[in-house]
């Protein structure tokens, strides 16, 4: 008989595959961090020497001083306001400026000695008033 002996195919035990993948799965489950990045989006103006002079009409200035007091209003008409009132004041000014046919631009200027927390509070209020154009005074 010249019949070749039949070759047996090697068997591969795949039963532990599930365990291995489970292990990897658990590893990735544990290491995955859920996105917790929250914050206030802001686009910084271009560098000072690229800035083109803008119009003055429709600009509302907000100043924050070293004592963290807020002064706001259109140029020459700034007055002191409390932090929670900024939003309402801005809505009022927005309407007033819109009636004159302009759009509102908010310019924020904080002194070097003011505290970051209050700066964020101002930005928060401005964002809540749904103002699109915000600039940082140099």
């Amino acid at each position: 008989m010249l019949k070749k002996p039949q070759r047996k195919l090697g068997d591969f035990n795949a039963s532990s595959m599930a365990d291995i993948t489970f292990l990897l799965l658990v590893f990735f489950l544990v290491t995955t961090t859920v996105s917790t990045d929250r914050g206030i989006l802001f686009v910084l103006p271009p560098t000072a020497d690229e800035v083109t002079p803008t119009r003055v009409r429709g600009v509302v200035n907000i100043f924050l001083n070293d004592e963290n007091q807020v002064l706001m209003g259109q140029r020459g008409r700034e007055e002191e306001v409390a932090m929670p009132q900024i939003r309402n004041r801005l809505t009022m000014l927005q309407r007033e400026i819109a009636s004159q046919g302009d759009s509102i631009i908010v310019s924020i200027k904080a002194t070097p000695g003011s505290t970051y927390r209050y700066y964020v509070d101002i930005l928060d209020q401005v964002k809540l008033a749904r103002i699109q154009r915000i600039s940082l005074a140099p």
């Binding site: 914050g39 206030i40 271009p46």
Partner: peptide, 12 residues
């Protein structure tokens, strides 16, 4: 600003 990375987020 100098790096022209101007899109920022103040994390809060």
């Amino acid at each position: 600003q100098e790096a022209d990375a101007r899109r920022i987020v103040y994390a809060t």
